[in-house]
């Protein structure tokens, strides 16, 4: 494993242990509940996680690089970013699955901007949950929020690409 990655993992582990030290001191029952809740969530998400990583592996071995480059690769202009944002808006799922997909896209030749747009749209724009959002907030709120989130994903992604890769498309 990458050394910096290992270091980060250790640091994160220490943070988690420290936060539970604090929790047990403050409210033992609540802390126990927290551990139980975390464990349950872990068990709950394991099947999904297995499926997601399976798909990531399949995507990596079966989808040729040329397809990814053609759709969201370098030199494909604004359309590459637009495609990434539409794809990200339609897909829904927890962040745990978004990041490995982002990484495999990058490896396959997607631009930084397209990857960032894809990830941001994945979390922020909800096509599938849109009807629910309307039922809670009303149409005006839901439409404006999703439009702004869609635009935001594109803007943030393009700037990320400019800052890291020096170009967005």
């Amino acid at each position: 494993m990458d050394k910096s990655l290992l270091l980060m993992l250790v640091a994160y582990g220490v943070l988690v242990v420290a936060s539970y030290f604090y929790a047990f001191k403050k409210d033992e029952n609540k802390a126990k509940k927290g551990i139980l809740k975390g464990w349950k969530q872990f068990l709950n998400q394991i099947p999904l996680l297995v499926a997601i990583f399976l798909l990531v592996g399949i995507f990596d071995k079966f989808v040729p690089k040329s397809i990814v480059i053609n759709l969201v690769g370098k030199g494909k202009g604004f359309m590459s970013v637009l495609r990434a944002s539409i794809l990200g808006s339609i897909i829904m799922g927890p962040a745990s699955s978004a990041y490995p997909f982002g990484a495999v896209l990058l490896n396959k030749g997607a631009t930084i901007a397209a990857t960032a747009v894809f990830l941001d749209a994945w979390v922020m724009v909800g096509v599938v949950t849109f009807p629910f959002e309307v039922s809670v907030f009303g149409k005006k709120f839901a439409v404006i929020r999703n439009v702004l989130a869609f635009v935001g994903a594109i803007v943030v992604g393009i700037i990320t690409g400019l800052l890291i890769a020096g170009s967005a498309f």
């Binding site: 993992l9 936060s19 539970y20 929790a23 403050k26 927290g34 464990w39 872990f42 990583f53």
Partner: peptide
């Protein structure tokens, strides 16, 4: 398998934040 330890940290830290 590589990600599992990190994932464990995430769920426990998340549940800590959710409760506290």
């Amino acid at each position: 398998l590589k990600m599992l330890p990190m994932f464990l940290c995430v769920v426990f830290f998340s549940s800590f934040l959710a409760l506290f």
